[in-house]
Design a protein around this nucleic acid. Structure first.
Length: 576
DNA sequence: GCCGTTTTCGGCCCGACTGTTTTCAGTCG
């Protein structure tokens, strides 16, 4: 049975091939829209299918629902097979080359009769492209550069790498002449767990000095474009950045525009048109003449549309505009709301600092409850604790609690391994003796779907387990999530009341927003934890909270934001 | 191909930048 990702990939391929074929653009857009919608669904399309409700999926109508039906039934699609005969599938890969679009691809393919990327590279090197219609020597070398950059660029950039890098760039640009303000935009500002490139917006009266500073940033390898309002650069490691410059009085519309998402902006522009206004990054223009409206802040942009300001994390066209219209935007959780960290490691297993040092570091950041979840015995690489070790650790916790007084409450917990056969690393009687049990998978993550799901369900159904740590086991950017049946996982979590973690470490951010939002809808408590192994790791809460905000979570949805008393009562009721 | 508190047909955001052009097409976000 195909999963959402496979369905989405199929429709993206169809869109790419149709585009090269020269099909009307809106048809290809419809397939792309359906593909994105499937990726952000948070539920399996096959469930909609079983209920006969495929057309409830946004962007899926009669034609695409029939195609999903065929794919789920047979695993194949007649329409796609035919299409591949008209347009070689290999050509879709060319679209990944920066600077190459569907028109040029079709033209080169037909003129030179080549379909392999290697042949394209050879043709460019041999100077065969420059004489084609609409091409020249520059286009030819641009294509060669583009192919070379493909190997340099390794896909999307983890948020934890992109965010600090953008802050550095912003700090440098703020020193340029005449700069009033600078801010991240794009998926970076929306805090997606990975971003494609860095979008940065600068407010300045004069553009030239800023653009000069942009192309002279440290580590710039190539200047992809340099204009008055926009410049693009590529760093030596393949990371790309785009910088816009707008005058301060237009900063609001410009920031709103550059933040996106594309679909959110489409919604706003439509709303503007309904009011007789045309919204661009520069201003609101009246459709029938009259004065333009300039906005220096985003608040003014949304106010002009009759909406409250929508936090960037929500701007994904997932119902936020509708909610804003009805004044039903959630009051999103904030960093300062987090009062507990329920996954922390110490030198008892693979942490870098003692429990006392970690507890003090957490207290310094306003944390009131900390749970030490050192690894369990079977995870040998981390020097997991035996039950005997735990007795000693418990004694140690008593001792440091006295030293810490009411500065911070220390819980004796464990990150218990969910073993390959689905059993937990300690017997139930022992789990019951701990203050808190967090269960996670670290090994055999590539088991087949049924097996790995059953294993997870077993942990969720253990009455002593309070939290499931980093549920899917993904590592950004290197490891795909385990092939879990997330519907079954969420269903079981809803039934047993176990909390699911948003692991705040930027290489995990697991659960990601779409699952966390679905969890909230099912009433599943969420726990945002740093998985800290050192003092700096406590800062990673910031990313965890960002993902929670993208999932529409409020204080009451997150157990770490509850009062210590409420949290302890909840733990007590869970029987461990 | 999808969609609908003015539409079941006629829309579907719109501007910047580049390169190959003598006014515009292609790509990108």
């Amino acid at each position: 049975m195909m999963n959402n990702r496979q369905l989405a990939d199929t429709f993206t391929l169809i869109a790419n091939l149709l585009e090269i074929k020269g099909e009307i653009i809106y048809k290809t857009l419809a397939y792309r829209k359906a593909s994105e919608s499937l990726m952000g669904l948070g539920r399996q399309a096959s469930d909609y299918w079983k209920e006969g409700k495929l057309e409830d999926i946004p962007g899926v109508g009669k034609a695409i629902s029939e195609k999903i039906d065929e794919l789920l039934k047979t695993g194949k699609l007649e329409f796609l097979e035919k299409l591949k005969k008209e347009v070689p599938e290999e050509l879709a890969g060319w679209l990944a080359v920066p600077g190459l679009g569907p028109k040029k691809i079709a033209m080169i393919w037909k003129e030179l009769n080549i379909t392999a990327l290697a042949d394209l590279e050879a043709a460019a090197k041999n100077g065969q492209l420059r004489d084609l219609p609409g091409m020249g020597a520059k286009s030819e070398s641009a294509i060669l550069e583009g192919i070379a950059s493909l190997s340099r660029r390794s896909g999307r950039i983890p948020l934890g790498r992109a965010y600090p890098l953008a802050q550095e760039i912003i700090a440098t640009l703020k020193k340029a002449k005449g700069v009033v303000d600078a801010a991240p935009a794009g998926s970076l500002r929306r805090m997606r767990s990975t971003v494609g490139d860095l979008d940065i917006l600068v407010a300045a009266k004069e553009s030239a000095p800023v653009m000069e500073a942009v192309v002279n940033l440290p580590g710039v390898n190539r200047v992809l474009g340099k204009g008055e309002t926009k410049s693009s650069i590529e760093f030596t490691d393949g990371v790309r950045a785009q910088v816009w410059v707008h005058p301060p009085e237009k900063f609001g519309t410009a920031l709103q525009y550059a933040t996106g998402s594309k679909d959110h902006n489409v919604q706003l522009r439509q709303l503007a048109l309904d009011k007789g206004l045309s919204l661009s990054e520069h201003s609101f223009a009246r459709v029938k003449g009259g004065k333009e409206i300039f906005c220096a802040t985003e608040e003014e942009v949304y106010k002009t549309l009759g909406l409250p300001w929508i936090p960037p994390e929500l701007r994904e066209d997932r119902g936020e505009v509708q909610a804003a219209k009805q004044n039903k935007l959630p009051k999103l959780i904030e960093l300062k709301d987090i009062k507990a960290d329920l996954q922390v490691h110490s030198t008892w297993s693979d942490g870098k600092l003692s429990m006392l040092e970690m507890a003090r570091a957490a207290a310094k950041q306003g944390i009131k409850v900390i749970a030490f979840t050192d690894h369990s015995v079977s995870l040998g690489v981390t020097q997991g604790l035996s039950m005997d070790d735990h007795k000693k650790q418990a004694a140690e916790i008593k001792k440091i609690q006295k030293q810490l007084g009411d500065e911070i409450l220390v819980l004796h917990a464990s990150e218990v391994e969910i073993k390959a056969d689905g059993s937990l690393d300690y017997p139930d009687e022992f789990l019951a003796s701990l203050d808190l049990v967090l269960a996670s998978m670290h090994t055999s993550l590539r088991q087949p779907r049924e097996k790995v799901t059953e294993r997870m369900l077993n942990a969720i159904r253990n009455p002593h387990v309070d939290i499931i740590g980093h549920p899917t086991g993904r590592l950004i950017p290197d490891r795909e999530p385990a092939d879990l049946d997330m519907d079954a996982v969420l269903q079981a979590a809803a039934e047993t009341g176990v909390a699911l973690e948003i692991n705040a470490h930027p290489s995990r951010l697991d659960l990601d927003d779409m699952y966390a939002r679905r969890a909230k809808e099912l009433g599943i408590p969420i726990s945002i934890n740093t998985d800290a192994h050192s003092e700096e790791d406590f800062d990673m809460r910031f990313y965890g909270v960002a993902i929670a905000r993208r999932a529409w979570l409020t204080k009451s949805d997150v157990i770490n934001a509850w009062s210590p008393k409420k949290l302890l009562d909840w733990l007590k009721k869970r029987g461990s």
